[in-house]
Every structure is written in C-alpha cells, then in structure tokens.
Simulated assay, not measured.
Amino acid sequence: MKHLYLFLAIAGAIVPYVFFIEFITAHGFNLGLFIPALFANGAAGGFSTDLLISSLVFWLFMFSDKQADRPKPYWFIVINLSIGLSCALPAYLYFKIRNQQTAAAVQGIP
C-alpha cells in the first residue's frame, strides 16, 4: 500500500495542476476570479464544498492522531493548501506507513 499512496500523492499533485495551469494561463493569478469560479454553478459548488469539508476532516484527523510514528501535520497542511487534498492525504498516509515500518525495523519487528 505504501507505494500506491506514493503514486497517488504524485498523481494528486500533477492532475489538479493541469486544470490550475489552464486557469492561470487564461486569467493569471487572479484570486478575485478564482474563488467565484469554485462556486460558479451547483456542480462546482458541491465539489468545492465537499473538498473543503474533507480537508477540514483531514486536518482534524492529523491533529487527533497521537501515535508516536505519525508524521507532523504542518507540512501536509501546506501541501493541502498549495496543491490539494488529492496530494496531501495520500502523502500523509505514505509517510505514516513509512514511519511505522521504520519504527518496526528499529525494534526488530518483522
């Protein structure tokens, strides 16, 4: 699963930027145009709201995870805000599994 999460994090970084680059090419870095476009119609508004709520749940999950091998959440919030949840969530899961495997190897657990 670890490698699948890494692949999905990379895909989650590339695919959304295809659309962002299309918007930036047409309109530049215009947040005044970008924000209303997120809610341009019911379908876009539904997806945007779903993504915002899912991001909030992800942040709450990261901060409530008290396991010693959990990744620090701050980098994943930056990834979430700058790239998107499609990259941040699988990246977090990749590093969580990697940290667990590293801790198990140090303790000699197969």
Rank of each mutant, 00 (worst) to 15 (best):
S48C: 07
S48H: 12
S48A: 15
T49H: 04
T49D: 02
D50M: 08
D50C: 05
D50A: 12
D50W: 05
L51S: 13
L51K: 01
L51Q: 10
L51T: 13
L52T: 06
L52A: 14
I53Q: 06
S54M: 13
S54P: 02
S54N: 08
S54W: 09
S54K: 04
S55P: 05
S55C: 13
L56M: 08
L56E: 08
L56S: 10
V57C: 14
F58T: 08
F58K: 06
W59Q: 03
W59G: 00
L60F: 12
F61Y: 15
M62K: 01
M62R: 01
F63C: 02
F63H: 03
F63Y: 10
S64H: 11
S64P: 15
K66M: 04
K66T: 15
A68R: 09
A68M: 08
D69Y: 14
D69P: 00
P71V: 12
P71H: 07
K72D: 01
P73G: 09
P73W: 14
Y74I: 03
W75H: 07
W75V: 02
F76L: 07
I77N: 05
V78K: 00
V78D: 01
I79S: 03
N80P: 06
N80M: 11
L81S: 06
L81M: 11
L81W: 07
L81R: 01
S82H: 03
G84Y: 15
G84W: 15
G84T: 11
L85S: 05
L85E: 13
S86R: 00
S86H: 04
S86Y: 14
S86M: 11
C87R: 08
C87Q: 04
C87F: 06
C87I: 10
A88R: 00
A88L: 01
